[in-house]
Each structure stands twice: as structure tokens, then as C-alpha cells.
Amino acid sequence: MEQSTISPEEIIKTGTVAFKPTKAMIDTNMSYCPGCGHGVAHRLVMEVVEEMGIIEDTIGIAPVGCSVLAYDFMDIDMQQAAHGRAPAVATGIKRVFPNKHVFTYQGDGDLAAIGTSETIHACNRGENIVIIFVNNGIYGMTGGQLAPTTLPNMKTSTSPYGRDVDMTGQPLKITEMVALLPGVAFVTRQAVHKPGLVRKTKKAIKKAFKIAEEKKGLAFIEIVSNCNSGWKMRPDASNIWLEENMLPFYPLGDIKG
């Protein structure tokens, strides 16, 4: 188990600041289901933006999907893109503002199904942007349908008998695919369902923003996350299911750079 910087004795003392929310997040109720990983992922991106002192020069792009309302939570200038088109929108911004920090925040349906072309070509051009790809293997927003990253035999509302890979193909490992492209400088797969993994993910996000800032190419971070509502599980059970099923198929760690 990883050590907290504050001892348990200190945490229970009245007046101890154990956690301070980043001012780059809006203090409001999130629209995400209790137990969902999006909230943590949002906060990590915003903590990095605040710590790097780049709030005034960062433009984020929200996708279509559960995180379509990311701009209601991230207290920065943001654009909402059409389904799958966030990397093209990011390209448009970056070409007129080469020195601004630009990131997209996309789910698996947005990035790896309808937006596959925009994803691959933005990666291949080596746009100096950060792509945060939250993969929970399902379409959450629309009620839990089959996604390109749904695991074999996994039940969804449009694969009620389990994903039949003979009919719908194998889950798309788009993260490994984009790692093959020379324009992509950094590719990593992380998770946020445990404190230690949260810290690692934050480190990876910071590295990604620095790589894009230094114009070394595109930085791509997959965050394997849960969708307890879509998976029809309790939050704690969904995290165990993620460990036992998602991670063997989507192993964590740096893939490139």
C-alpha cells in the first residue's frame, strides 16, 4: 500500500487540510453516477493544468458522451465537439494558437468508433496536443450499449447475450495502434480506481502536457475506468470486475515514450 503524505493521526485532527480541491475545478455537483471514474480523471487533468500554471493558456475539448458536460466542471475555456471530432477541433485550435495548451477528453465510443479517423490522423500529424481517452468499454451516456472496446462475451444492452466477436470483431486496442505512429511521442495506459494508480495517472498526465508543450508530438493517455451503471454493478464490485477483466485485456503501463 502506498503511503499518504499525511499520517492517519494527523488526518483525524480537526483543522488538518488533508485534501484541497484544485481551483481549476468548479465547485458543483457532478452529473456522473456515484462510483464513476470520470470525476477523478477530470480532477487530475485540472490539477495538472493548475500546477503547471497554464489555466490562462489552456483550451479543453469536451466530446459527445458522458463527459459532454466536462465544461460544466472544468473551470477553463472549453469547446464542445461533435461526436468523435474532438481531435480535428483540437487541430483547428492548435493551428491558429500553436502556443496554447490544447487537450481533448474523450470516451471509447467517441474516440475509437465514430472518431477513429480523426484520432488516427491527428496522431499521425503529430499535433502537439494531449488526448485523454477514458475507456470503460461501454456507451454510458446512451444507456450501456456495445462499444468498440467492449470485452469479448461482455453483456451490454446491444449485446444482451455477450459480445460475439465473430459478429462484431475483437475489442479495438486503439492505444496500441496509435503508438505505432511516428507523430505520437508518448502513449500510456493508466487507471484511477485505486489511490496509487491515481497518483501514477496524474504523473502521466503532467508528462503528457509537458511533451505537448515542448512540441515533441502528440501525447496519448488511456485511462481504463469503470461504468458501474452501464455494467449494472455496485461501484465497489465494478472496480473488482475492472481489475479482474479489463486490466488483463488492457494492461497498464507506458507503451511508448
Binding site: I61, Q79, A81, A82, R85, A88, V89, A90, T91, G92, I93, K94, R95, V96, S117, E118, H121
Partner: peptide, 10 residues
């Protein structure tokens, strides 16, 4: 598709 969405961003 990409071209017009680049226009959107800019």
C-alpha cells in the same frame, strides 16, 4: 468532416 471541424475549433 475533419476539415469543417478544424474550422469549428479555429
Amino acid at each position: 468532416l475533419a476539415a469543417i471541424n478544424m474550422v469549428y475549433g479555429a
